[in-house]
Design a protein around this nucleic acid. Structure first.
Lengths: 339, 339
DNA sequence: TTGTAGGCGTTATCAG
DNA sequence: CTGATAACGCCTACAA
């Protein structure tokens, strides 16, 4: 049996409540007894029982992470490890632990979150994505359970704590950059249109085209899934349009890596035949040949500040929700070429 | 206030203990009352409180993950996301949650683990690495706290539950492969010699050389850290030995990616001037140019089975500890060349 | 400044 | 088959 507060109390010749106060560093305890109690804790190797404490004070000092469904795909993308790194750095600073529940599909994840919050496993939740009509976000709002979002909530974003890049701006920036290089046929290989990040970036893309008087063409915007389904087929279709794109904006570097492979196989070369720019600036992106031009969205900070927003919210629940925009930077390497 | 077992009891007109039995699906409760209670739970939206339950039964249905120090480095390496994917798949199958505590250095991590196990946050622990004289492993053994290791424990490995590749064999395999291609000057850029995986692989490397009557040379075995410190300097030193290596065995693909960059910068080309083989077979390894020859160590399974070993141990504590060897496969691509 | 007692939400033991 | 009742380890009034 583990050593409890009572054992310590007995050894130190005080009441359990006194020990409890020493743990909480209650100022109304004399330094003398504090010292005595601490010694007792030391010799006994006492460690407080989190479950008992959580039960009593209704707080766990842990936050829960919610990832988009299917761990499979999630962890293949370096985005998540990096964002978790940011989160866990902040969590550690504030002495919080991290809790993950996983599931293969939406429903399983939803159930996991429900157990997490109702079961009192965590004090708050971090949503690592933002999509349209997300059931989990609705749940959290209904239950008034503290949470923070990485990405911009689709609705009521002003009232929800979140951390995001300015994705409209980022989409506009990359497009303008390509336009400045002389490109007019610019395709956008984007992520799921459920995701707010996709929506924002495409909006920025359209705005940049509009500002430059370049007509927007539907065939130029293709979703990632569309590519995967047909293997190379989807991509080939894009590249054999009557007016094939001379430049590609790609959802993220990871996808770019495989697209670079496809382009290679088609006998085209980057950047002479086609320009390529994408998002995330993964560590590996500077090692590809040619090195990848990419938008650094500072994934680490996204996680770091999101955790901070959540923890601040837990500290002072009535305060206004915080929102943070993490700046992005265009890292020009060698996959974009003047036309 | 959340809805408790008592509220359910009241609504269903039974005693709290009966509700508890329904939750546990105790066979000695009539189907009738079970149904009634379940309806009550439904209408009230009841969810059991994990902390209370954990306190009562002294089990949390959660396992803790221990990663090597410095989250920084850890998460940059796709090994960890992938191993966590395996772990979380199994954890989910058995309805366990995952708990992570983090720290910037050894001591912080040690403290985190101590809180984790004494505080009753987790039922068992998974060590995601194995090194010589690891304090945390010692702690776990002393406290007789259930744990399982990914990698081979340095000592008493027969008595410790663990999952690993046959790393001696893997090191031998790659070396023999290069020897068969005619190489005699084979360098090994390995990880820290504290890590058991490194030790095993180097042993395999030496054995292969010995079997082929190729004298072992100390200068050919260089640790990764040695490279990083001097940037390219360390690598250049290796490549400008009186008898520079014609083939490189590299710790993992990630490191290979940057080494490929260095080789490129030095004006050498792969595999004509130098052959390269490494471990882990990351998803991206087939997209490099040339595609990387690599040993697939099946990281996912490493995690999956390690979690299984741990959970089995929790289910039946007195059983013999399990050990699993995950087979590896040499994936021949285009970075190795006959000399 | 410190001790006493009751409660946090469950489960388990023992009656009935 | 079901109902009291006492733990589990800690916290917090309230009392002293």
């Amino acid at each position: 049996m583990a050593v409890t507060i009572k054992d310590v109390a007995k050894l130190a010749n005080v009441a359990p409540s006194t020990v409890s106060r020493v743990i909480a560093n209650n100022p109304r305890i004399s330094e003398q007894t504090k010292k005595r109690v601490r010694e007792a804790m030391e010799t006994l190797g006492y460690h407080p029982n989190f479950n008992a404490r959580s039960l009593a004070i209704k707080s766990t000092k842990a936050i829960g992470l919610v990832m988009p469904s299917s761990v499979d795909k999630v962890f293949q993308n370096p985005f998540f490890p990096e964002v978790i790194r940011g989160i866990s750095t902040m969590a550690h600073e504030r002495e919080f632990a991290i809790y993950m529940s996983t599931g293969q599909n939406e429903q399983e994840i939803y159930d996991g979150v429900e157990r997490m919050i109702h079961g009192g496993r965590v004090d708050g939740v971090l949503l690592l994505y933002s999509r349209i009509d997300d059931k989990i976000m609705t749940l959290l709002q209904e239950k008034k359970f503290p949470f923070s979002v990485i990405g911009k909530p689709y609705q009521h974003s002003e009232h929800i704590s979140h951390v995001d890049n300015d994705n409209f701006r980022a989409g506009k920036d990359v497009t303008e950059y390509l336009i400045k290089l002389g490109h007019k046929q610019i395709a956008f290989i984007c992520g799921s249109l459920d995701l707010v990040v996709t929506i924002d970036r495409v909006l920025g893309y359209k705005k940049a085209l509009e500002d430059a008087n370049i007509p927007y063409q539907d065939e130029y915007v293709v979703q990632e899934e569309f590519l995967n389904d047909g293997g190379m087929a989807g991509f080939k279709k894009l590249m054999t349009l009557p007016a094939p794109p001379t430049a590609l904006i790609v959802k993220d570097d990871l996808l770019s890596f495989s697209i670079m492979g496809m382009i290679d196989k088609m006998g085209l070369s980057i950047p002479e035949d086609i320009s390529l720019i994408s998002f995330n600036n993964l560590m590996l992106s500077e090692f590809t040949r040619p090195p990848l031009t990419s938008v650094d969205i500072d994934i680490f900070k996204l996680g770091y500040y999101a955790a901070e927003c959540l923890l601040d919210q837990l500290d002072s629940p009535d305060q206004e929700v915080k929102q943070v925009i993490v700046p992005h930077t265009l890292i020009k390497r060698q996959t974009c070429h003047r036309i």
